[in-house]
Amino acid sequence: MYTQEKAVWYAMRATFRKELDAQNILDKEKIRSFIPMCYTVTLRNQRKVRELVPAVRNLIFVYATLSDIKKVKTKVGYLQYIVNSRSKEKIIVPDEQMKRFIGVASTYDQKLIYLKPEEVNLKQGTPVRIIGGSFDGVEGVFMKVKGARSRRVVVLIHGVTAVATAEIEPDLVQVIP
């Protein structure tokens, strides 16, 4: 009996800062991927240049079936799974969690803060939903973030990364019971 594989979001590393190369190859294979990006200003030939670059080094999320990823990995040796340090299982991000993460990370807001999972203590925050503004509908945890003056909404991808929104007006934050 034939069972069709289900596509899921895999958290992966593209070593040697080749995440954009990996994304180009995945695009050619018609495989969806997402790289959190941000704008930076660099100096080139004594001129300031604003460019869009990966916000988290070597990180790429790939939406595909396991067999499709295995096929791509035979061509792309630097693309590796991120595994859970305890269970040694590949990290698969639930669709809803990935949707929230993409909702925040794809705004390219310069005030977004990317955090390592160990920098986030969800027990100290309050589960919230943003109502209105550019982050409308995003759910996360309202908490104090290192390096920020005020509390922010944090969306976490367990074991991989987290992103904290720009400052949010308190009247746009709704506590989730």
Rank of each mutant, 00 (worst) to 15 (best):
Q4W: 03
W9P: 01
Y10M: 04
A14I: 02
T15H: 11
T15M: 11
A22K: 02
N24H: 09
N24Q: 12
K28L: 12
K30Y: 08
K30P: 01
S33M: 05
S33P: 04
F34W: 14
M37L: 15
C38N: 07
T42K: 13
L43Q: 14
N45I: 05
R47L: 13
K48E: 03
K48Y: 06
V49L: 12
V49F: 08
E51S: 11
R57Q: 14
L59Q: 00
L59S: 01
I60N: 02
A64Y: 04
T65E: 01
D68Q: 15
K71M: 05
K71R: 10
T74N: 05
Y78I: 04
L79K: 03
Q80D: 08
Q80C: 07
Y81N: 11
V83N: 13
V83S: 12
N84L: 10
S87Y: 12
K88H: 11
E89W: 10
I92F: 05
K99H: 15
R100G: 05
R100Y: 11
R100S: 13
I102L: 13
G103C: 06
G103K: 01
V104T: 14
A105E: 01
S106T: 10
K111I: 02
L112Y: 08
Y114L: 04
K116D: 01
P117Y: 08
E118I: 07
E119A: 07
K123F: 07
T126A: 09
P127V: 11
V128G: 05
V128N: 04
R129L: 11
S134T: 11
G137S: 14
G137H: 14
G137F: 13
G137Q: 13
M143L: 15
K144M: 05
K144W: 00
R151S: 14
V155Q: 00
L156Q: 05
I157R: 03
H158G: 09
H158R: 15
T161K: 00
A162T: 08
A162N: 06
A164G: 02
A164W: 03
A164S: 00
P170W: 09
D171I: 13
V173T: 14
V173R: 03
V175N: 12
V175P: 09
V175C: 10
